[in-house]
Design a protein around this nucleic acid. Structure first.
Length: 133
DNA sequence: GTTCTAACA
DNA sequence: TGTTAGCA
């Protein structure tokens, strides 16, 4: 099937499908017309790609994992042990990101909890805050 | 009308 | 990733 129908069935924009191909995630055949020709099985591949993207993996990593990922009962998992270190590495990246977000939240919490009453407003357009209780 | 590539008010 | 331009 061509990209239009495939896009609708996969629920992914044509733009994204072309991007996935450019990143080596999908390799649809080409008709003599030059149009991409997708296989029924590509629908499963796209689902896997979306899952991996949702997990925060970059396309380079996905290209590496995709060939070995297997699906069972709707669950996607590594088909070979070599993938585990890669997945763990990304999990650590997520942990660091969460830590950074926690830091950002703390900074915001501290500022929100400590409004500073001033006599002359810093900015004429600013309303002075009330003194904390 | 559909798809393709390339490029970005 | 969306969108648009210019083709075939």
């Amino acid at each position: 099937m061509r990209i239009g129908e495939f896009s609708r069935r996969a629920g992914v924009s044509e733009r994204s499908l072309r991007y996935y191909e450019q990143q080596g995630l999908l390799r649809p055949a080409r008709q003599s017309s030059g149009y991409r020709a997708y296989q029924e099985s590509d629908l499963r591949t796209v689902r896997h790609i979306r899952t991996l993207l949702a997990a925060g993996l970059n396309t380079e990593t996905i290209a590496e994992l995709l060939p070995c990922m297997v699906e069972d009962g709707g669950r996607l998992g590594p088909g070979c042990a070599e993938l585990l270190p890669v997945l763990r590495r990304d999990r650590e990246r997520v942990d660091r990101a969460l830590a950074d977000l926690a830091t950002a939240r703390s900074i915001l919490d501290a500022m929100i909890a400590a409004p500073i009453p001033v006599t002359g407003a810093a900015n004429s357009a600013c309303e002075p805050v009330d003194a904390p209780a």
